[in-house]
C-alpha cells in the first residue's frame, strides 16, 4: 500500500518573522526555510508504517516554487522513496493546493494520505480536510496515535478536553498532531542517497488544475505591541500589585 505525504516549505520555526514596511507581507528574504514541523511528523509516521511492513512506498509531494525541492530532498533523506513537486510561482491557498494534491493522488492511488495538521506560516489548518472532501475520503485529524488493520485505520485524536478514537475506512486522510511521534534526523549517508531518488516535477497545467485564489490579502501588519511591565522583587509585592493595582485577584 502506498502512503502519500504532502509537505510544505515554511519559515524555520525558530525564526522570528518581520512584517515588511510596505504592509504586503512578511519579509522572507534570506530567512532560513524548513519542512513544516507537522509535515515532518507526517513523513516520520509514513516511514514508520513502511518499516512496520504496512506501507510499501512513501511518496512526498509539495506544491510551490522550485525551491520546495530542497524540502522534498529532506523528506527523501528521512525515508521517503520518491517525491513529486507541483511547481508554481503563483500565490496559492489551501483549496487550490488541495485540488493539485487530488490530481496527484489520482495518479498515485495512495491508500493513506498523511498531512501535517497545520502549517506554521498560514496557520490555516485546512488543506488535509479539504483534500479529504475533494477525494471523498474519511479524515482522522489531529492524530496522536495511528494503527492500521483490516483495511481500516484506528486513530486517536487530540480534541479540546481530551482524546477521541475513530475508525476510518481506507483510503483515508490523517493529519498529524504534535505527540504522534518524534521525527528522526537524516543521517549523512541517507542525505547522499536522497540525491539519487526520483523527484518528478509537474506544472498545475499538466495536472489540469486551476490554483487561482479567491481570497485576497489586502495588508499585513505587525500585531499591537505589548509593552513590558515592571519587575517586582518579592512574592509579597507581586500579590499586592495584583490585588491593588491590577485588581485581578480578590
Amino acid at each position: 500500500m502506498k502512503v502519500l505525504v504532502p509537505v510544505k516549505r515554511v519559515v524555520d520555526a525558530n525564526v522570528k518573522v518581520r512584517v515588511k514596511a510596505d504592509g504586503t507581507g512578511v519579509d522572507l528574504a534570506n530567512v532560513k526555510m524548513a519542512v513544516n514541523p507537522f509535515c515532518e511528523i507526517a513523513i516520520e509516521e509514513a516511514v514508520r508504517l513502511k518499516e512496520a511492513g504496512v506501507a510499501t512506498e512513501v511518496i512526498a509531494v509539495s506544491v510551490g516554487a522550485q525551491a520546495c525541492q530542497e524540502q522534498l530532498r529532506t523528506c527523501l533523506a528521512l525515508g521517503a522513496d520518491r517525491a513529486i513537486l507541483v511547481q508554481t510561482d503563483a500565490e496559492i491557498q489551501p483549496l487550490g493546493i488541495a485540488k493539485a494534491l487530488k490530481a496527484v493522488q489520482d495518479k498515485v492511488g495512495a491508500s493513506i494520505v498523511i498531512f501535517g495538521k497545520q502549517s506554521i506560516d498560514g496557520d490555516n489548518s485546512q488543506t488535509g480536510q479539504m483534500f479529504a472532501a475533494l477525494t471523498g475520503m474519511p479524515q482522522a485529524t489531529f492524530a496522536s496515535r495511528v494503527s492500521a488493520a483490516d483495511g481500516q485505520l484506528t486513530v486517536v485524536r487530540e480534541i479540546d478536553g481530551g482524546l477521541q478514537t475513530v475508525r476510518v475506512k481506507l483510503p483515508a486522510v490523517v493529519t498529524t498532531d504534535l505527540r504522534l511521534n518524534e521525527p528522526r534526523y537524516a543521517s549523512l549517508p541517507n542525505i547522499m542517497k536522497a540525491k539519487k531518488k526520483p523527484l518528478d516535477v509537474f506544472s498545475p497545467a499538466d495536472l489540469g488544475v486551476d490554483l487561482t485564489p479567491t481570497v485576497k490579502v489586502l495588508k499585513v501588519e505587525p500585531p499591537a505591541e505589548r509593552g513590558a511591565g515592571i519587575k517586582v522583587k518579592t512574592v509579597e509585592e507581586l500579590v499586592e500589585k495584583l490585588r491593588n493595582e491590577a485588581k485581578v485577584i480578590a
Partner: peptide, 23 residues
C-alpha cells in the same frame, strides 16, 4: 475555531468549492 470546527469546516468549504477563512 475549536478542534471541532477546525475538523469539519474546511471539509464544508471544499464541498462548497469556496475558500475558508480560518481563525
Amino acid at each position: 475555531h475549536t478542534t471541532g470546527g477546525r475538523n469539519y469546516l474546511p471539509r464544508v468549504a471544499a464541498l462548497l468549492d469556496v475558500a475558508q477563512i480560518s481563525d
